[in-house]
Design a protein around this nucleic acid. Structure first.
Lengths: 213, 213
DNA sequence: CCCTACCCCGGGAAAATTCCCGGTATCCGA
DNA sequence: TCGGATACCGGGAATTTTCCCGGGGTAGGG
């Protein structure tokens, strides 16, 4: 009896060719392919056989990896979830793990490594590849750090205005507050982000995805 | 005689599984696989057979798609180049076409479409999928606009330093020029990018991918 | 009730940024 | 040999940013 695998990735080429590759492994067969979380929900309803392991891409339109993993953890707790991503940011890994994934694979993993991972997940129930070699302590620390970067609604609004061709005077006007108050926000943000200039703040805000470009 | 295909993509999983898929097409065989342009150069030197069609990922570390395509156009003009990307920005497409690609495929293309594309490239020498339906007029116009944003080496260096927590004094020191000269660069850039502050300049530089975050 | 978190504000001064005026030198291709 | 592009520099001044000092208020939980 082959182990049933499900795949979710928004890139058709990757989805189909990965499917081919997994079929070539002999121990595994692909029973569901979906382009995103929404697509998967529909396909599962039509009575396809439920996979034992689900490989989930993190970056997807419509319903992304985190949301999909969370939904699967809720609705199909029996399925073992594996995050699949090209991005090895701690933040992404942590949120997929928290969403219920028992492994995190990078897209530049070697195929034999993938097979090994699938085996381990099948037997042990989890897999720690080099992507997860990042020790959990560091993950948790960086998670803690991230929490310190939580900003209030007003601060976020300020950050967005900071990331533009505007003077603080204009920002004050736009926020409906005094210039001095804007100073206060700047100082608070400089402190939180450990920067010393508006440009530095601006760059950090973008890096942390608090502001979209 | 099968048509020889070469693949370049930095994601091992995708590379290997796409290779599998193309092998399954029966009319094609994969003769070279590389993780980036540099890797390809090395592999071509070791006397592997030269492919007739090369599929090139656009986003890669070390030596990216554009650079690789340019190099191949120079060194191996016989090879037909196909850009492969998940990103359908006009700018990316145009630069790959200009670098010598005769087709542009998106990674969410369906496998059958890929096969069709390969066939067309083989017979006609080019392929226009829906990604290229974007009319060329618009592409050329946006390209013209982009050309106004070409920057000299020194200006690029300046832009990178601008996008950091540094004062102009420090930038002058780092570039080995007088502070006044830095003023000149700033003024030139403000003019080119139509911005009025360092933050605005910084954001534009990032948006135009002149500076990496 | 106090403590904490968030939000708001005034005034003054040093430092950095922005914008003017002017100038020189080199290299390259028409 | 002439323009044009590139790189370089000085001095002065207005504006903005940055950093201090200080002071309010409200809302919510222990």
């Amino acid at each position: 009896m082959k182990t049933r695998i499900g795949l979710i990735d928004d890139h058709q080429l990757f989805l189909k060719s990965l499917s081919l590759m997994i079929e070539s492994f002999r121990e595994y067969e692909v029973v569901v392919e979906a382009l995103n979380g929404k697509d998967l929900q529909e396909k599962l309803q039509t009575g396809t056989s439920i996979p034992e392991i689900m490989l989930i891409d993190v970056n997807m339109p419509v319903m992304d990896g985190v949301a999909t993993a969370r939904w699967l953890t809720e609705q199909h707790p029996g399925i073992k979830l594996v995050a699949l991503s090209m991005n090895d940011e701690d933040k992404t890994i942590i949120s997929m793990i928290r969403a219920g994934c028992c492994a995190y694979l990078l897209k530049d993993t070697h195929p034999t490594e993938l097979e090994k991972a699938l085996e381990e997940i099948n037997s042990k129930g989890f897999y720690n590849g080099d992507a997860s070699n990042v020790n959990y302590r560091r993950l948790i620390i960086s998670q803690d750090k991230d929490q310190q970067f939580k900003v209030t609604g007003r601060e976020l609004q300020f950050l967005e205005l900071v990331c533009s061709d505007r003077t603080y005077k204009q920002i004050a006007l736009e926020m409906g507050i005094a210039e001095r108050t804007v100073d206060g926000y700047r100082e608070a943000m400089f402190e939180k982000f450990k920067v010393a200039s508006r440009v530095g703040l601006c760059l950090e805000a973008i890096r942390k995805n608090l502001v979209r470009l």
